[in-house]
Structures are given as C-alpha cells and as structure tokens.
C-alpha cells in the first residue's frame, strides 16, 4: 500500500513538474486587448500617411474617434530608452572636472560632443556637489562669524 502511494505521489510530482514547464512557455494577451487594438489603429494611420509630417500624423491619431483610450503622442522611441542613471554609470573623471574646476570642465565635458551622456551627467553632479559644499561652508562661516561678533 505504501509503495502504491509512493508511485502515485511520484507520478503526480512528475506530471506537475512537466505541466509547470509548459505553462512557462505560454502567454495571454487578453488583458491588453483594448490597448493592442488601439495601437493597431494607430499603426494603420501611420501606414496610410507615409508622406505626412509627424505633427499631421499626431493630429490624425488624436482626432481619430476609433480609439478606445487616449493616446499620448509625446514619447521617445523605445529603442532609445535607457535605464536610469546609477552609481555604476558615474564617470569619476568627469565628476572631478565639475567638482574641482567647472569652468574648464564646461568645455572639456559638458559641451564636448564626443562625451557620453553619463559623463555629462557625472560632470553636472560634480558641479552640484561643489555648489552644495560651498553653500554649507558659507553657512558655517556666517554662523561662526555671527557667534564671534555677538
């Protein structure tokens, strides 16, 4: 009896494992049907207006009454979207230009077309950090001065 139970349990486990792997490779788009059909309408408008300007296409999309939901035409191409700036993206050289010598860094980093976006952000973070430190130092100096004279 114990053996039969073990075999049944083993089969149940195998069946569950195989079922879960097949489930892994299935998907259901039913919950986004409305959005998908709207995007198909937009796709058709774009295809039918190949020679129109972006503004004209946007106007046709917004004025189209076939859309079920509102469509925001002001967005960046998904191919250019990147993750948010993190500490891993920090370029410490560019940061140092901003922190120690921002006027030179303005030409070396900020207005240099060969520099990447992350380097430019690092430069501005450097500038911001220097300004923040300057403000703190100024406040501390003013407070100390005030205490000294009064």
């Amino acid at each position: 009896m114990k053996r039969i139970f073990t075999v049944v349990l083993a089969f149940a486990f195998i069946f569950k494992a195989s079922a879960s792997n097949v489930d892994l490779f299935s998907y259901d788009l039913s919950e986004i049907n409305t959005e998908l059909s709207d995007l198909e309408v937009v796709e058709n408008i774009i295809a039918q207006n190949q020679n129109s300007t972006i503004d004209e296409i946007n106007r046709k999309i917004i004025n189209n009454n076939l859309l079920n939901s509102s469509f925001d035409t002001n967005y960046k191409s998904s191919l250019m979207v990147r993750n948010a700036f993190t500490s891993d993206d920090m370029d410490w050289g560019a940061f140092a230009w901003g922190f120690c010598c921002w006027p030179v860094g303005l030409f070396v980093v900020a207005t240099n077309n060969d520099k990447e976006q992350s380097q430019k952000k690092s430069y501005w973070i450097g500038c911001g950090s220097a300004i923040a430190l300057d403000v703190i130092a100024l406040v501390v100096a003013l407070v100390l001065d005030y205490n000294y004279y009064y």
Partner: peptide, 9 residues
C-alpha cells in the same frame, strides 16, 4: 503596453 501604450515604426 505598460502604464501607457506606445508604438515605434
């Protein structure tokens, strides 16, 4: 499609 709908062609 996430919180908004977008299309790129």
């Amino acid at each position: 499609i996430d919180s908004t709908s977008r299309i790129t062609t």
